[in-house]
Simulated scan of single mutants.
Amino acid sequence: MAKHDPRNQAIYRTDRQIAGVGLLTAAFSTLVFAPHVHEELVIAITEQGAGRCVTRGVSAVGTPQTVMVFNPGEPHEGGVAGAQGWHYRSLYVGAGLLEPARDRLFGRRITLPYFRDSVVSDPDLAALVVRAHQALELREARLIRETLLLGALAGLFGRHGNPAPPQSRPGRERRPIRKVVSLMRDAPAHDWSLAELADTAGMSPFHFCRAFRRETGLTPHLYLTQIRLNLARDALARGAGLADAALAAGFYDQSHLTRHFKRSYGITPGRYVAGLG
């Protein structure tokens, strides 16, 4: 069982009426996030102290005057920046909410905006996001929650969204790396060796590690851990027990899952399940 850490506290919730949105309220003093990705769009507002993030090799610091935003599927890492700790609120907006919201906001089907900067200075937008988060947290009337959430997304999309960067031309390494990724997804619980994966890609282990990170943004080990975390999270959301979810996803045991879950998401699996309602 994970030990209670009074220095790093977080509560996760979902909204029973607005599918596809999760919210986290966190007060961290020492927490450091391992490199990871989220399937959702993540929007974070610092209320006290500061938080550091590293995305696409660029380091930035979030303060109460800024908004932090992470594109779905984009690797990032970070943690507390400074002696005051980091108190923040974050919204996790999934595709089930993002795509309909996009159509309602713009009145036509468009490509979802891409955010080139992970930290933007915009106090007015920060206030909009905090108000929307508070309404969701306090379970205010549904109309209020939906209106404030849509308003915050409209502000973020309109002020800071950009067209997605053009896809680079596929290199010779992309296809073999995708083959390896598919293999890992098909058998996430397998105890893969570096030699097995490199052989599948037709590369030396050294070349494979460099190519894999260049294509995915993560090392092979971290990518496999992320696949397993996503599987465990889905299983927990469907009602699976913690031990069963851990083993099915390929973790050694419950404590192994808990350790990686908290390093990536800032909460334990138990807190995550409690927030699902």
Rank of each mutant, 00 (worst) to 15 (best):
M1H: 10
H4N: 12
D5E: 07
Y12D: 00
T14I: 02
T14V: 07
T14N: 00
Q17T: 04
I18K: 04
L23R: 14
L24C: 01
F33M: 07
P35D: 10
H36P: 03
V37M: 06
V37W: 06
E39K: 04
E39C: 01
E40R: 02
V42I: 12
V42G: 06
Q48H: 10
Q48W: 09
R52H: 07
R52E: 10
T55L: 12
T55I: 15
A60V: 06
A60W: 01
E74N: 05
H76S: 04
V80D: 06
V80C: 07
L91P: 02
A95Q: 15
L98M: 13
R102W: 04
R104P: 00
T111K: 12
D117H: 12
D117A: 15
V119W: 02
V129W: 02
V130M: 10
L138H: 15
R139N: 08
E140K: 14
R142P: 05
L143D: 08
L149T: 13
L153W: 00
L153A: 11
F157R: 04
G158H: 10
A164F: 02
Q167H: 09
S168E: 13
S168V: 10
G171R: 13
K179H: 15
V180K: 01
L194F: 03
T200A: 15
A201K: 13
H207R: 09
F208I: 06
C209S: 13
G217L: 06
L218E: 05
H221W: 05
T225G: 06
T225Y: 02
T225V: 13
Q226H: 04
D234T: 04
A237G: 08
L242N: 08
D244F: 07
G250P: 00
D253M: 01
H256F: 00
L257M: 08
F261E: 04
K262W: 11
Y265K: 11
I267C: 11
